[in-house]
Write a protein that binds this DNA or RNA. Structure first.
Lengths: 340, 340
DNA sequence: GCCCCTCTTTGGACCGTTCCAGAACCTGTC
DNA sequence: GACAGGTTCTGGAACGGTCCAAAGAGGGGC
């Protein structure tokens, strides 16, 4: 009922000035121990909590970093957040999450609430909101795009997994197992393009360009399912499929199941992202681990660096992914087709 | 580089006082149209954004509701957030997410950052953080526990799915299909207890008390797997399993798979929560839809009501769940055991 | 006892808003 | 043309902190 205590209430109870309370609470060592104790005791007794709004108004900074997520339903970013948070937290910064999809309702820019709160920095995870609005933001505060490779506004940093390397690892894993007809179910956006082109390049490098087959998908399970049905109904059907992401790969598994193909005996499947779904025993998908934690850590690093030097030019950092071999890939048992 | 424009900059450019700018921006109709236009134009030209910290300091409210999530990795709450947001947003409130697990690092209470920001209300989604801290918060601001049935601090509201009804629906679905040996893999917490007891009650009501079997689990896939291995190695093994949640049910599927049992022919499986995993074609799990969206809407409703009447006693609201029948349940094909 | 110096402590300005009392300006009436 | 009453507009005081210049306290040297 009664209003929360302020720094003045604490000062009064401790018998000192509000300035001294402020000093103590900010950990100054220019304070006599007895006074410090008196202040801390008073604060404890009153249940004092600093008012973040007042503090940031006065300090001209919020010690808060806004994180814009494109879709909470797609949990691949959880590791990334974890890495991000660990470093930010160690530097006394808090993280504020906003779901771009939820906030889109308004028709306004999804970053608006965060910008109104005057966050000190912005991390955009995954696909971009309105690039124009982001560019405006990048002029005022540090902006980092994490986990995607969209074109960045000038002055923004980009940290992401190395999609080219990851797709190459996956493709060469399949080639190394002896597969030659390896199909790819593609996605959209910068990530989709990079993974597809890297797959194509790897096939070409191993003299398999003619056997490459790209089927478009929409990065959903349903899309993976449908693309697989199309792929497997071809006369020269593939013995392995590289999907643009895990969820698409799960669609591939469903289709294979339905068409009576056993995985990995009749069909090898590789996903991408190493989401929790891939780790389910029931799925146990071979996939590419995007090193989300490390991406998050580096994104935080970028932000921290940029607080120090706001004018530094935007950089792009790629984190090396790792192949995670599980149960959906094996050597092909089908006899080598004549055309191979 | 230059500092963001303030309301005074706008006032100067529009040739009016800052108070008038404030009036215009808050949509007062006590302003002459020409002045209003001048102010709006000036604001647009300067790229003015209101400073949320200053506003909330002055207004003594933040128009922000804090949402405390227990674990972003467990995405069952996404629908809930969606429902929550829709109503809050319509009432001019924004949502701030905090992950309790991420913030726990500090050893402090995970709600601290939200409370420092002086959120106007708090929604705790899922299992509780430190109950003591929550109780302190409930004294100052409206608190709603959403999606779980933990004991609430006095003055807090609780909105959740009706676990008893859901578990009964699921159990009776299995009984209706002809199953008699129905096992339950239990979980922990209030939710775990309610679902288990409701399962037991339903079995009893149908004269199947002797055939009831409860195996403890830990609400993870691994736990579901292990519990199933134990269950299926019994001489009188069940023909159906009701799992405490979807993720546990996926563990059941894995174990069945590994032991050579076909689902649903040899074993029926029901999950709980209707998470996105249950909807994967490759899983296609029969489960209980917890009506997350509706739970979220009602939680928002509670909060809004409580802004109006802070002293109202805490209420508990239950939302009726619905059975979602998919591919993992069917009539038992095994002959009825003699003891049945 | 006085002066200087360092270590503590304090009052007051400021951050960018809202809110409120009252000023200024209309308009119509007598 | 003064006045009442309404509509518009304004200055200044909050809000709860931080920051800074300067005041006060204490100690040492002469």
């Amino acid at each position: 009922m009664t209003r929360p205590p302020t720094i003045r209430d604490v000062a009064e109870r401790a018998g000192v000035s509000k300035s001294l309370v402020s000093l103590v609470l900010r950990g100054s060592d220019q304070v006599r121990p007895e006074k410090r104790d008196a202040v801390l005791r008073a604060a404890r007794e009153l249940g004092y909590r600093p008012n973040a709004a007042a503090r940031s108004l006065s300090e001209q900074r919020t010690r808060t970093v806004g994180v814009l997520l494109n879709d909470l339903r797609n949990p691949w970013f959880v590791d990334l957040l974890d890495g991000l948070n660990s470093l930010l937290h160690a530097n006394g910064l808090r993280m504020l999450l906003a779901d771009a999809r939820l906030n889109r309702r308004t028709g306004q820019d999804p970053a608006d609430p965060l910008l109104d709160l005057r966050v000190d920095g912005l991390v955009v995870v995954g696909t971009l909101p309105d690039p124009a609005a982001l560019e405006a933001a990048a002029g005022r505060i540090p902006v980092v795009l994490a986990g995607s490779r969209e074109p960045a506004p000038p002055g923004a940093d980009v940290v992401a997994g190395d999609d080219e390397q990851g797709a190459r690892l996956a493709t060469e894993h399949l080639i190394g197992l002896g597969h030659r007809r390896i199909a790819h179910i593609a996605g959209y956006g910068a990530v989709g393009g990079l993974r597809r082109r890297s797959y194509e390049a790897a096939m070409r490098r191993h003299g398999l360009a003619d056997l490459a087959a790209v089927e478009p998908g929409d990065m959903t399970e349903e899309g993976g399912y449908r693309a697989t049905v199309r792929l497997l109904s071809r006369p020269d059907r593939p013995t392995a499929v590289l999907a643009v992401n895990d969820i698409t790969a799960v669609g591939v598994l469903s289709a294979a199941d339905e068409l009576g193909l056993r995985v990995p005996r009749d069909l090898s499947v590789v996903g991408y992202d190493d989401t929790s779904i891939a780790r389910l025993r029931h799925v146990w998908l071979t996939t590419v681990d995007n090193a989300g934690h490390e991406v998050g850590r580096r994104a935080a690093r970028c932000l921290l660096d940029r607080f120090g030097d706001p004018a530094a030019p935007g950089r792009e950092q790629l984190v090396t992914p790792a192949l995670e071999i599980r149960g959906t890939t094996a050597a092909p048992t089908v006899t080598r087709p004549l055309t191979g």
